[in-house]
Each structure stands twice: as C-alpha cells, then as structure tokens.
C-alpha cells in the first residue's frame, strides 16, 4: 500500500523564482557580514562603530526572520504576535545598561 501511495507523488519542477530569492538573500547576508569585518578592522572603537554593528545586525536579523523564516509572508496577526513581545527586550536593554553604569559608578 505504501508503494502504491508513493507512486502517486508528483514532483514539481524547481521554483526558479523562489530559489533566486533565496540566493539573493544569501548574497545580502554575505555582503553585510563582509562589511562588518571591514568596519571591525578599519574603524576605531566608539559610538559610531558600535551603532554600525548594531544596525548591520538588525539588517541581517530582518532578512533571516522575514525571508528564511518566512514571517514576511505570514498573516499580519502572526507577524505582530511575534514582533510586539520583543518590546520587552528593548526595555531590558535600556534598564540593564543603565544599571551597569550605576554599578560601575559604585565600584570605581
């Protein structure tokens, strides 16, 4: 019976448009990572360098989540269900970095 069912499977041809999009995102991720390296080796550390790193990380995260994890093409409600709770992370970053500075002031 299993063989009977298997023989009914029709393999569709490669979706060229989809594969092209995957390759395009892969190239973008590669370029952004390479650019991160260039910045790491040529710029001196400071606020600008750190901001550039964070910006490029967000760009990469956007492409991975929206294209690879397919979130961009899901229902709008699902996108918000996943995105809105991450607000708490932003709060956590601000609160704990501030706290870290305060601890530094106490210690030194």
């Amino acid at each position: 019976m299993a063989i009977d069912e298997t023989s009914k499977v029709v393999v569709q041809p490669v979706n060229k448009e989809k594969v092209r999009r995957i390759v395009r995102v892969a190239i973008i991720l590669g370029i952004v990572t390479t650019f991160e390296f260039i910045v790491a080796f040529t710029m001196h550390s400071g606020t600008l360098r750190t901001s550039l790193f964070i910006l490029m990380t967000i760009v990469k995260a956007f492409y991975i989540v929206s294209e690879f994890m397919h979130l961009k093409y899901e229902k709008k409600m699902l996108i918000w269900t996943i995105m809105i709770p991450t607000i708490f992370v932003i709060w956590l970053i601000i609160a704990l970095i501030y706290e870290g500075g305060a601890i530094y002031d106490v210690r030194f």
Binding site: L92, I93, I97, E99, G100, G101, I103, Y104
Partner: peptide, 15 residues
C-alpha cells in the same frame, strides 16, 4: 536576550 543583555550589564560595570 537575557544572557546577552546581562553580558552588557556586567561589561558596562567593569573598567
């Protein structure tokens, strides 16, 4: 996020 943010906190509280 909690792990990375606490890394940030501890790094920030060191010289």
């Amino acid at each position: 996020s909690a792990l990375l943010v606490s890394y940030g906190l501890v790094r920030y509280s060191h010289a």
